[in-house]
Simulated assay, not measured.
Amino acid sequence: MISVQFSVRPDQGDPSGFDLGDMALTGGLGSAGSVGHTPDQGMMIHLSVTLLLDNLAELMKTGAKLLDFTGIDTSFGISFREDRAGIITVSAENRPLTKVTQGELAGAVFAAAQELAAGSVLKLPERDSARADYFAALDGFRPLVERSA
C-alpha cells in the first residue's frame, strides 16, 4: 500500500510552471515528505511530477531495477528498487516506506498526478511549456497504469 500526494504552495502569485510545491508519500513502513525541513525541500512541483512520471515510466518499461529520483530545485529524493520478484521497495532518506507492485505504484502516482492536474496544472497559462510537458507525461504514463490494472 502506498499513498502519494502532490501539492502547490499558496500565495505565489499568478500560476506558473515554476511554482513551488511538495510531495508526500506514506506506506506501511513509514512516511516521507518535502514539508518541514531545514533547509527547505520544496520543489518546482509541476516540473518535478513530470520528471517523476517520465522516470518511473522508463523504469517500468526497460526493466531497470533502481531509480533514485530527486525533484527539481530540491534535495528531496525517493528511491525505487525492484527485486527479482517484481516488488518495488520505496525509500526516502535511506528508510523504507513500503513494498508495492508496479501496478500499485503506478496507480498511486498516476492518481496523485491527475489530482494535481485538475487542481493546479489546468490553471497554468496555455502557453506555459510546463503545462504541455505535464500532460504529455501523464498521457505517456497512462498505458502503464492501464496495463497493470
Rank of each mutant, 00 (worst) to 15 (best):
F6P: 00
A32G: 13
A132F: 12
G77N: 10
D83V: 03
M60D: 06
G21K: 00
L59Q: 01
N55R: 15
D40Q: 08
R142E: 07
Q5M: 07
E126W: 06
E104R: 00
F110A: 08
G27H: 03
A112G: 05
M1T: 07
G17Q: 03
E146V: 15
G63F: 01
P143K: 14
G42C: 05
T98P: 03
T74Q: 10
I2Y: 01
T62M: 13
V121H: 02
F6L: 05
G119T: 14
P125H: 12
D83T: 05
R147F: 13
G77K: 09
T38L: 09
E58L: 10
S91G: 09
R95S: 06
L53N: 04
E146I: 13
Q12T: 00
A108H: 06
K99E: 14
L25K: 06
E126Q: 12
D40H: 04
Q5G: 09
G13D: 03
L51I: 03
G140M: 09
A137F: 07
G30D: 12
V8T: 10
V8W: 00
D54V: 13
G140N: 10
G36K: 06
D14Y: 06
L20E: 01
L29E: 14
S16W: 00
V35W: 10
S79D: 10
S129A: 13
T70L: 09
I72C: 11
G140L: 11
A113H: 07
D40I: 04
S148N: 11
